[in-house]
């Protein structure tokens, strides 16, 4: 295998490292944050910028090594960045719904109360 150009390995390394750092911070946040509504913010770091950087690094790497434009990573990025908000919103709505059901008849709300419209 021919030697990689230095600029490529530095760019790819930077993308992969920063992306992995953001993703890891999001996941660790998922484990450390105290309530569900806070935790819902954590995974989006991995799916927005963290994932974007890693996928971009991969696209760049294969584009240079194979000598032709490789952009199918963009499909994964598009897919992940569209589906994650959808699942998160679904989960959030389910949680709001369940919290309201559980809060009915209780004095002290467990989480900051979502406005009760029921």
């Amino acid at each position: 295998m021919t030697e990689l150009p230095l600029w490529l390995s530095i760019l790819v390394s930077a993308g992969v490292l920063l992306g992995a750092l953001l993703t890891m911070a999001g996941c660790v946040g998922l484990a450390r944050l105290r309530d569900f509504y806070l935790r819902i913010h954590a995974p989006t770091m991995g799916t927005s910028m963290g994932g974007g950087l890693i996928l971009f690094a991969s696209a760049l790497y294969f584009s240079v090594t194979t000598g032709r434009l490789v952009i199918h990573e963009a499909v994964i990025f598009l897919f992940v960045s569209v589906t994650t908000p959808v699942t998160l919103m679904l989960l959030a709505r389910a949680t709001v719904f369940r919290d309201r059901v559980e809060l009915r008849g209780k004095e002290e709300p467990i989480t900051p109360p979502p406005v009760d419209r029921a």
Partner: peptide, 18 residues
Amino acid sequence: RAQDRILALDALYVVGLL
């Protein structure tokens, strides 16, 4: 709660993908 586990599972999938 169940929603925490599902959220974590979703995140696990994404990290596995990356």
